[in-house]
Design a protein around this nucleic acid. Structure first.
Lengths: 204, 204
DNA sequence: TTTTTGTTTGACCAGTCGGTCATGTTGACG
DNA sequence: CGTCAACATGACCGACTGGTCAAACAAAAA
């Protein structure tokens, strides 16, 4: 039923080149603001060749979002209910911040999709991610009830983690401007700051 | 030199209608993802009529960004160096949150512009806003040195305020999904949460 | 070598893009 | 009322959009 024609070496290489170029452009201009010619030029392939590997522009975009969907939740999944509560959350923050540092384009692709009303993500978000979210909300609530964490609204706690970490990827341009032209990597300071923030807020 | 032909009643009304419609579309799809036809349809005017009031599509966009630029910094300007430090910052957070609640489209317009690399904002940001930012950073540092606020990295403190408040406008779709279909207004809870967060982090 | 299959592209298509223009309609004002 | 400037739009333009296709090329199988 699910026929999987094994990808040849060339297919793998070119599909990867296309997706990488598309990530560049989509994450900056969004779906509608991106043209196939831009992707073609960035990837070094001709436009008809793009459409040899992906039937439509939308198909490239969807493939990127699907890949993103799989990896984006890993940091949250890794929160261990058996671990030490504060340390688990601080580690989660750290992992999310590292994702912003190492995969800023993915973060911006996600931001763009949400800004446009999540036309593709909407249904997907209501499924697995929503369930994982609820599960961790319940876990945090348990920890708070046990006095292991200070009482805060658990849903907004998660929003704050997402917001604070993704901000460094999504608003990178602005942050560079305001931190001055020294071009120093802001992530070490950001990590320290966020650790302080969540420690002070969550210590019972 | 600076000739200012006073706008007629019709001009005022139609320019406002165009800018309002353009804000709708630009804030969702970004500059490149927006078409004049969309703005025309949303505003209820014909496409040539748009171009009667604004010479180009870019001009509409620039006008919106200019207007945004003027109002967006008001909450930060209102921070009073003579006030009580923690209360001043909490009030600032509150004002920023209210801007997200009352002007979410403006927030998303800004986010879109930054995501695309701030092609228009770049130079502007380096001017007045950057100066205001530095001024408040210095103020916060003074307060911390005087022991009136806990020591944290003042620049990242400001980033965290921007991030946490704008998040409720920029990622509104996602937040609605995760808070459930009850459709309850998330802002009261958000305000309470942020007040707790910044109080705990900044109390010496 | 020939054949076959997989890969690449120049030329092209219909529809949409931002923008123009000549013409028509409306409103302000004497 | 009449007049004139302000306002509005249908028809159109060249450039670009996502996408097609037949023909050319390359790689592997025969």
């Amino acid at each position: 039923m699910n026929e999987t024609p094994p990808l040849s070496r060339i297919q793998k290489k070119n599909r990867r080149a296309i997706l990488d170029a598309a990530l560049d452009v989509f994450s900056q201009y969004g779906f509608r603001g991106t043209t196939l010619d831009q992707i073609a030029q960035t990837s070094g392939l001709s436009k008809p060749n793009l459409l040899y590997y992906f039937p439509t522009k939308e198909d490239i975009h969807t493939t990127l979002l699907d890949e993103l969907m799989q990896d984006w939740q890993d940091p949250m999944r890794a929160i261990d209910p058996e671990g030490e509560p504060l340390e688990e959350i601080l580690d989660y923050v750290q992992r999310k911040l590292e994702m912003s540092r190492d995969f800023p384009r993915e973060s911006r692709l996600f931001a763009n999709e949400i800004l446009q009303g999540a036309p593709q993500f909407l249904d997907a978000l209501k499924g697995g991610p929503r369930h994982l979210f609820d599960e961790k909300v319940a876990l945090f609530q348990t920890w708070m009830d046990q006095g292991k964490l200070a009482q805060v609204h658990p849903q907004h706690l998660i929003f704050s983690i997402w917001s604070l970490t993704q901000h460094y990827a999504d608003f990178e341009v602005q942050i560079r401007i305001y931190l001055g032209p020294e071009g120093k990597d802001p992530y070490p300071e950001a990590g320290k700051f966020l650790r302080t923030l969540f420690t002070r807020m969550l210590t019972p």
